[in-house]
C-alpha cells in the first residue's frame, strides 16, 4: 500500500545508509509522544504503594530504595528511546531489533523487584520474549528472501506473495508475544503489580505503541 494513503504525507527522511527513517504525521505523533513521556518519567519520582494492614489502623508502605530507583529509571529511559526509535524507523529488520531491545528492557525494569509473584511472571515473560525473537527475525529474513529488500519504502511498491504473507504472520506472532497482547497478556499483567509506578508504565506504553506501529508496517507490506 502507498505509505501516503495509510499514514499521511511523508514529511522527510533521515538517511542512515540503507536504513532510511521516514517521518509521516502518524509516526511523528507517536515519536513525539514517546519522547515526551520518556522525559516525564526521567524527571519524576516513584510512587509509594500504601496497603492497609488487616486488623489494625496502621498502613504498610512499600517504597523503593535509591539503587533500585536509579537502575529502573535508566532502563525506563532507554526503553522510551527505543520505543520512539521504533516509531520512525523505515526498515523492517531495524524495527524487529527495536522490538527485541524493548523486550529485554521490559524484563530488566521488573527484574529488580523483591516480590516473588512478580518475579515469577517476569520469568515467564522472559521465556516468551526469548522464543519470540525467533519468529521476529525469521519473518524479516523470509520477507528479505521473497522480495530482496528490507526497506519499507521499497516493500510498499512490491506485490506481496505467499512467502511475504507467511513472513508477516511470523512477525505478527513474534510481536504478540513480545508485547504481550490479548491471549498472552497474563504474564505482563502480573508484572504491573509492583511498586514504582512511572517506570512500570513505560512497559505498557511501549507495547501499545509498538503494536500500533507494527500494524501500520504489516498493512503497508501486505496490501498492494
Amino acid at each position: 500500500m502507498d505509505i501516503a494513503a495509510l499514514s499521511g504525507e511523508i514529511f522527510g527522511f533521515i538517511p542512515l545508509g540503507d536504513i532510511m527513517l521516514y517521518i509521516t504525521p502518524f509516526s511523528l505523533f507517536m515519536f513525539a509522544g514517546a519522547l515526551i513521556f520518556t522525559f516525564l518519567i526521567a524527571i519524576s519520582k516513584t510512587e509509594t504503594q500504601v496497603e492497609a494492614e488487616f486488623g489494625s489502623l496502621e498502613d504498610n508502605r512499600i517504597s523503593i530504595d535509591l539503587k533500585e530507583f536509579k537502575i529502573r529509571r535508566f532502563l525506563a529511559i532507554i526503553c522510551g528511546l527505543a520505543t520512539s526509535g521504533a516509531m520512525i524507523t523505515g526498515d523492517l529488520f531495524n524495527f524487529t531489533l527495536f522490538v527485541t531491545l524493548i523486550g529485554i528492557l521490559n524484563i530488566g525494569i521488573v527484574s529488580a523487584v523483591k516480590i516473588i509473584d512478580v518475579l515469577d511472571s517476569a520469568f515467564q515473560y522472559g521465556l516468551i520474549a526469548m522464543i519470540s525473537s525467533m519468529p521476529l527475525f525469521s519473518g524479516a529474513a523470509l520477507i528479505l528472501g521473497a522480495t530482496g529488500t528490507l526497506s519499507i519504502l521499497n516493500l510498499a511498491q512490491i506485490q506481496p506473495n505467499p512467502m511475504v504473507y507467511f513472513g508477516s504472520a511470523l512477525i505478527l506472532i513474534g510481536l504478540l508475544g513480545e508485547s504481550g497482547v490479548a491471549p498472552f497478556y497474563a504474564t505482563k499483567a502480573e508484572m504491573f503489580r509492583t511498586p514504582g509506578s512511572p517506570f512500570i508504565l513505560i512497559i505498557h506504553l511501549s507495547s501499545l505503541l509498538i503494536i500500533t506501529r507494527a500494524i501500520e508496517i504489516l498493512l503497508i507490506i501486505n496490501t498492494f
Binding site: 511472571s121 515467564q124 516468551i128 522464543i131 519470540s132 519468529p135 506472532i173 508475544g177 497474563a186
Partner: peptide
C-alpha cells in the same frame, strides 16, 4: 490468567504457524 501456562500456549501457537 495463569502466567505459567502462557509460554506453553505461545509456543503451541508458534508451532502451529
Amino acid at each position: 490468567a495463569n502466567p505459567k501456562l502462557i509460554p506453553r500456549l505461545f509456543s503451541l501457537t508458534l508451532a502451529i504457524i
